[in-house]
Amino acid sequence: MKTSTRQLDGVTVVDLSGRITLGEGSVVLRETVRDLIGKGEKKILLNLGDVTYIDSSGIGELVSAFTSVRNQGGELKLLKLTKKVHDLLQITKLYTVFDVKDDELAAIRSFKK
């Protein structure tokens, strides 16, 4: 999995691509979010538009990222789910736990000022 980050109106957008699975993908996500929290970033938008596959370890890593940011008083939201990822979050009842957005600008505006 590959990640790149960019800043947009005070929000850190993390563009992810590839697979978030046990092993490399999960570790990359974990370290990326940990680094952002370490830098004091508290508004994080994970763009999953190019994430082709997530397994249960990947789901666990998304949940862990969500709770880690929330425990620091921040917000972590998800952007652009593929159908596979959307269905997986529905099945696991996590779709309503995460704040999921389809439009990037609307997602940016939805973070607390």
């Binding site: 666990g60 099945i91 696991t92």
Partner: peptide, 21 residues
């Protein structure tokens, strides 16, 4: 049960549920 409200935010425990699904 990974769908129980108290387990929803646990990091692991979804594998067998996904197999059954």
């Amino acid at each position: 049960d990974p769908l129980a409200p108290e387990n929803l935010l646990k990091q692991s425990g979804r594998g067998i549920f996904l197999m059954r699904t």
